[in-house]
Design a protein around this nucleic acid. Structure first.
Lengths: 201, 201, 201, 201
DNA sequence: GACTAATCGAGACGGTACGTCGCGTCTTACA
DNA sequence: TGTAAGACGCGACGTACCGTCTCGATTAGTC
């Protein structure tokens, strides 16, 4: 817990420094402790802020976290472009898996997914958050479809990618290594690529 | 809320009737209200039981729910046997998806997955719960592998099935209809079935 | 049980209206029911207050009662002044006995004395409470001693007065009527007043 | 806490060894800890007895204590006989004070007096207990009255003796030494002995 | 010599008070 | 005039003790 930095009041306008301190404190605490031990009060204390200041701007502690992650996510989005559809897909999946290998990130994702099951508001906000990544993948697949390189419905493919990702995050059921990413990519390409009519069954 | 049935004491032995009443009450309440509105006290009241009786046997309200679901699951497990690997796989996926289409069931699964992210104990118990279904699918795939009908690592296949399932349960991201099950089956078989060496691209 | 009056919040300062409501509720309940049936919760409910508000300011329900009685006692103290030592003594004892004849008062005193035997904190507070009355009597006796009207150590005399009082309160062993007060006064004066050297025994 | 001694069952008859163990455990625990920390369960454990065995024979833990003290008291009662009324009175008061100077005894008395204020049953039993001592003193005073050596009502005198005693036990307000006993005796004799009509003030 | 009856140690049970904690609202006092 | 501080009403939490119950064993008296 860092000591709250000295910070001047800014009068009747929203204090951006306070907002930042709150987001940072929330991110740090949710990354390091069980979510139950993170409290509006603990965030307020670490941020050197009154609790009311938090309630004025966010409905729940999870809303703070979501805002903090959205803030971060805004910078980190990039579209792969390797020139080929298989290359782009592998790049996308590898990058996605890699992001989730960061312990803090996966912890925060788990916290949000958990809360989304309880609070419809958070559920909606998490959907918006995940839909941005879905959209990126969809565009990639659309390009492949335009070239006739796709045989499976895009929605199913997307769900397979993110399904495996979330399943392994939430249940510790498997690796998210580059190798795992390559493995998944190969499997999806197998089902994806049109094939010659199979020989008689 | 049903009135608690009269129930005889059983002396120094555990009272199985009380246990049943508690499991039933937990299942009902978690299925019908937000998990936050389910309380050890509300379960105890509905079951006609003292709160201490619950604390004596379960560490948290979610542990009750898990035990209740395990109890149910014990009876409902069945292995499909259609004679062919593709048929068995489709039957398995369809049955699995169908079970999750029941609103109560999926609600309970969401509650448990959410809590598993907070309580390591629940996480462990949920893993045991899910591992039983994984095991069933694995056996099915092992039979196929023995016939040389499998090309993809079994673990990856399993994670795709349950990944899509949980992903759609948790994020409302897609259907769990028989059609969806067939679609997924076909995609996985595509990955799965060995194919003649593809002609040069 | 009266319905809790609407009461405005007072922000970050202690809410005196709430404090009053709590003291009044405690006094009323302890006066009317067995102490075991008085609960922090019942007091809180009657006072229209959260339980935590009570725990914030008082360690036990008996501490509330003591504060309530001290509050009352603050106003009711008066020193008799009849002009003569015997008159003053009789006035004091009569007044003291009379106060204890009120059923509510004696009930509360019994409750406090009982709790004082269990909780050293309450014991200390009850001593402070009783010491104020002792002090009043002591001053009365000091005036008599200054006039040479006293033969017995003041402490013993004081203990005789309050000893009889408490003994009769706690064990229902005798009356606290004005007659009883006069009787005790006469006895004490007998032992008190210096007498001419007694004739040979 | 002594380990429970091995003790044979006695079949369908009451087990006297168990009764003794319970009385001893109660006396020890009440003498050494705050009464709130003495529980039917702790007594049962120390006595190596099931709780039900206690509930079968005593209504409350205080009833156990009272029975234990009565058992002891049965032996310790003795009537002083010095030949003179003043001597007898001083002997009685000194003996009474002395008994109360034992820390364990006074602790137990305080516990009982406290509980007597809450439980009418205990109140009644304590009155019976104290009335035996009152009766002894009353007989002593009756003998004096028969000789014309008494000027004050016996009841008032008795209440002064036990009043001072209990008052000092309950509030730590004064000594119970032999000196204190002598002092009180002298004061009471002053009240007691008829005197020549006092000269006009 | 089997059978009944009561006691005993043990511990689960339905209750209820306890004191703590976090929530979200409210008001004051400070800067 | 916006903010930190913190009191407030609320209610869930998990613990402790209460007094009741049933169990399985043990032993004493009864038939």
């Amino acid at each position: 817990m860092t000591t709250p930095a000295a910070r001047p009041h800014t009068g009747r306008q929203r204090n951006e420094a306070a907002r930042d301190a709150i987001l940072r404190a929330a991110r740090r605490q949710f990354g390091e402790r069980p979510a139950a031990d993170v409290t509006v009060a603990t965030i307020a204390t670490e941020a050197g802020v009154g609790r009311q200041t938090i309630y004025r701007w966010w409905p729940t502690k999870y809303a703070i976290l979501l805002e903090a992650m959205t803030e971060l996510g805004r910078t980190t989005v990039e579209q792969p472009d390797t020139g080929t559809y298989p290359g782009d897909l592998e790049a996308f999946i590898t990058a996605t898996f890699n992001a989730a290998r960061d312990t803090t990130t996966s912890t925060l994702l788990r916290v949000l997914m958990a809360e989304a099951q309880r609070d419809p508001q958070v559920h909606r906000m998490l959907r918006e958050f995940t839909d941005r990544r879905r959209q990126a993948l969809r565009e990639l697949l659309d390009r492949a479809a335009a070239n006739g390189e796709l045989d499976t419905p895009a929605d199913l493919l997307i769900d397979q990618v993110f399904g495996v990702l979330w399943y392994r995050i939430l249940l510790d059921n498997g690796p998210l290594t580059p190798t795992a990413a390559t493995e998944l990519t190969r499997a999806l390409l197998n089902q994806t690529q049109p094939r010659p009519p199979s020989p008689k069954p």
